[in-house]
Write a protein that binds this DNA or RNA. Structure first.
Lengths: 206, 206, 206, 206
DNA sequence: AATGAATGAGAATTCATTCAT
DNA sequence: AATGAATGAATTCTCATTCAT
């Protein structure tokens, strides 16, 4: 399967500042379109218009429509990964419950900042061009969780670390996302954080 | 937002057998297209072709493209609901763990039977026309779970039943789906069922 | 090299009369556009407009833009082939010079009837989609000429029939075409026919 | 039809050596693109890239895209003209057949050296911007041939020199080109040269 | 002179939907 | 009821050309 290259990099030199700026403008525009009008409004011309550049310019930086979403995805996945890594590898000693809560809260913050974006990344991103990207990111996150579980295994219940990491990662992520998407009755910000913390602690520790 | 009515036939009017059959043929065709070629191939003419009817006929039964997906969704959601209801209201006494496992296994069966369909319903369905439908179904499922938790609350840890029902429902559903979509290394059918059972029991009981 | 199919045939049945008519209307429109505004004006929307149908309809019958030119090509090549075949296999006895003149005149008639079309077919057709088509047609025409030369070889000078057929075919065709395209000073309809007849007779006979 | 001027630099103004060099670099790049990737790849940015200059620079020397092809055409036409002139006006006495062969061989050499280029010039050049250019060149070549025929008329058959010059020029040129483009079965380098020589001699002399 | 980012008109193509038969 | 030809708005993407730096 030949995969089209996605970012159009200037032939060689370290991207000019102007270029960088334009790429940014376009991505921000894409987010705005997404947040305001949803996935189906994310047409190349709409994004260009909102970004205040011409379609041509957009295509100077993104090989095709999907490349825009891909770029957004990568940016966001990167942020989430970093957050996870930072917290899980933090040297400050915390109780397991404190750590679980910290992770849940950090994720909460990420999603709350741009719920529509995450909705799209989770929902549409999954069906988009490179399913590998999402799978790979999930694998990477699960890997981080698993690494942590391995270190902490003494304090945990006996279990398949692979599976446990996978399950807790998916559970927390999906519940959080669904919370933002569905605003379920009887659940609020505090409660969801509490419950997901509880879920994590109870599922993993003895 | 005015919502277009979706099925052409009046809700209650006893539908002709031929009509019923045609509707069925179309829905099965849609599933086949979905399973074989994915969401983007689900065009009205493709579905009509596979169903062996003309586009015109298709439009005789479905007001618009989205109505087809909606109908698929409803059918599948109905099945899932029934399953959940049957198990949770079953008179046979089971241990909590047995019941949890029974539900997890039933869900597993449902997904395994038509993974592509569920993928589409979960992933694409969510972004499709009537987000209410999904939300409504989720609400209904969560409601069933909550009803059960209420009855069983004596044996459970103290908690917000609303939130707990929401969290456990989303967690099990998402983990299962992700399992089928991503085939994570180190996890297999048995393990995923075991772990989700464990998750459920640990999260809810003392 | 996978070659896209070009004509969109109605699934099975012998094309409806309406369909046939529409195809014709589109091809005629294409010729008109070509004759009036040249190759670069031959856009799908222009052709559709001139044909009085919508772009959608055009695409119902032609898989892509090139398919239209291909169809024109085939039609015209067919005509030329038939003409050549009819004349060369004609039972009426003619002198070699009479036969040569008959062929040259027939070709002259073909080109004169739609010079712009032939210009495009010769000039643009060559660079278009299926170079094979043109080459194949040339090969077929050369084949017809060669077959004739073989039969008549007793009356001809000794030579490579392959090469002679190729050379005389290309020479007559190109000179005729150039005559229409360039309207060279000092040459008129009668003279060009005379000279190409002369060329043929002198080149082939003793 | 107002015709845009094509070269940026004033016709006679002594061009700077650097300018000359840049023009050359661009033309060579254009040929390389043409030979390697064909007509459709001949975009201004592609040519600039291969030439190692910026599009801006390209436009400094060529008023528009077509001007590049025009320039190529002129260069090549110039060469062909010179060749023809040199041979036809050569003082060394040769038999008619020897002369005919010399011209055919020279033309053969020209085409063989860069078949793709000549293909493009013949096929695409014709449809490009200045049809006058090609017509004018053809007229000039035909003029050279005619001048020669006039001088040699004593040894030739009686005929319209205009027409004969036109016909023989087009015939030899087209057959040669088609030979390179179509690689017809049963014809090789030697044979094609022989036959075109034969064609010329037989057509023109008694 | 050179650069190359930006422009935007315009081209091909798709597909949900309608409606005359 | 069924058919399927016709519609045309909408979308993606290209590329010749300009112009501020």
């Amino acid at each position: 399967m030949t995969r089209r290259s996605t970012l159009r990099t200037a032939r060689n030199q370290p991207q000019q500042p102007r270029s960088r700026a334009t790429v940014s403008v376009i991505l921000e525009a894409a987010i705005r379109v997404l947040e305001q009008d949803g996935w189906d409004a994310l047409t190349t011309s709409r994004v260009a218009e909102v970004a205040g550049v011409s379609v041509g310019t957009l295509y100077q930086y993104f090989a095709h429509r999907e490349a825009i979403v891909e770029a957004l995805q990568n940016r966001e996945l990167e942020r989430a990964s970093e957050m996870l890594e930072r917290l899980l590898k933090s040297p400050e000693p915390k109780s397991d419950r404190e750590l679980a809560r910290a992770v849940v809260e950090a994720l909460f913050g990420l999603y709350k900042a741009a719920p529509a974006l995450h909705r799209v990344l989770a929902v549409d991103g999954l069906r988009l061009a490179p399913p590998e990207t999402v799978v790979a990111f999930d694998a990477r996150s699960v890997g981080l969780v698993k690494a942590f579980l391995t270190v902490a295994s003494a304090r945990l219940r006996p279990m398949s670390l692979e599976a446990a990491a996978f399950v807790i990662y998916q559970s927390v992520r999906a519940s959080m996302l669904a919370y933002f998407l569905e605003s379920p009755a009887g659940v609020n910000d505090d409660v969801i954080v509490d419950e997901l913390t509880e879920l994590t602690v109870r599922y993993l520790t003895t």
